[in-house]
Write a protein that binds this DNA or RNA. Structure first.
Lengths: 217, 217
DNA sequence: CGCTATAATATTGTATACAGATTGAAACGG
DNA sequence: CCGTTTCAATCTGTATACAATATTATAGCG
């Protein structure tokens, strides 16, 4: 089965949760021994997870000094958004060149399902549906390296979900607007104008203006 | 000093060298114990390096099965080129919005130095000069995440250097053409047309047509 | 009282040890 | 002869041990 999880993976999730929940404050030393005691495991898998997190940019690693949490500042969030927007735009354009792999009907049904959830003010499934929507054209791009890269970049942001318990009156109109953009993406993909698709995905959908909400993706 | 290197780093270089030199064939299991014996160190740093390589995509990691070399197929090279081209184009556009950080004079002097090396058929410094040239506008972009990402992506390709001992009569005209493009990039940056810069960097300079040579970057 | 030097403590990087999983080969049955 | 089962050898994932380095606390001195 593919459901084997090593202790490293467990630690990985534990630490990202500690960081995104705010229990681990930014710019502070991470104590390996504390995590070991916490999870009742040895240092080996803890260090493996820390090194992976450091390599991904979640935390810093200073040789012979240890691991330190990093602040996910608004600037870094904007930076990552800009990169994701650029690469998703690229993926969308590539997907247009492989129409046999691009399932617009599937995208329409996903957008419809998202609409239903929004109308019912039920945002439970929003995250995974939105991810699936974007994944349609990302997978269709056929660029395996791009697919992997986008998945890694998005890991940074998803965590924020749990932080923002904004009121429904704020969230709802944002989600409505976003799914309108999803429909617009479908129309543009149908239209066949590559630069229009690129510009819209990059500069509109991932504009970053509502980055704090976009973290739902 | 910043010149501390852990054993992990040593192993990292050792394995990438083994792969790029062809001593480690593609799609074959990597024997941890062999590397330990080879370098006369323990498994801990070896595994650290292997996990980092796996995370970067150089090699595969199958839980409880081990690490396996991957083929850097022409398709993967093209994929990575397309991504680098897209992101460098983005960096160049961002740099145009921060003229105070973009040192065109430095870029001109680097391009001049590259020209000199090409004229003398001396390609020793070509790699680092070219890297420095691109790094001018990448750094000027101000997007730290983008800077890190591009550095990681380029690590994939630089290794190929040592593989290709193509004859001078093939290499020389390619390098000439490439540095012409560098000058063109400078002119376009001066011109101020962002979309022209983006399209040129992405679709011309990183077209991938001469990807096998572009690995000099 | 503040600063430097030195000793005690904590932490990192690496080595070694061990249990469980995987692989491969021999033994067995159809 | 081919497929299955069993068992030994190998390898991975994790735990523990230890030496080198960094940090903190203490003592000495101006």
């Amino acid at each position: 089965m593919a459901t084997y999880r090593s202790l490293k993976d467990l630690v990985y999730d534990h630490i990202t949760a500690e960081i995104s929940s705010g229990r681990l404050k930014p710019n502070v030393a991470i104590n390996e021994a504390a995590i070991c005691a916490d999870l009742e495991i040895s240092r080996t898998p803890v260090r493996e997870a820390l090194m992976q997190l450091a390599h991904e940019g979640y935390i810093d690693h200073i040789p012979r000094r240890g691991f330190f949490t990093r602040a996910l500042t608004p600037e870094r969030i904007r930076n990552i958004y800009a990169i994701i927007g650029d690469l998703e735009a690229m993926a969308a354009v590539l997907a247009m060149g492989r129409p046999e792999h691009l399932d617009l009907d599937k995208m329409r049904s996903l957008a419809t399902e998202i609409d239903r959830g929004i109308e019912a003010h039920n945002y439970e499934a929003y995250h995974s549906l939105q991810y699936a929507f974007h994944d349609q054209f990302i997978q269709a791009s056929g660029n395996e390296e791009l697919i992997r890269l986008l998945a890694n970049l998005k890991k940074f942001l998803v965590q924020l979900n749990y932080l923002r318990n904004t009121g429904d009156e704020v969230i709802h109109p944002v989600l409505v607007k976003m799914n309108h953009e999803h429909w617009q993406i479908i129309r543009l993909l149908e239209g066949g104008d590559r630069e229009a698709v690129r510009a819209f995905v990059r500069d509109v959908h991932w504009s970053g203006d509502y980055a704090p909400f976009h973290t739902f993706i």
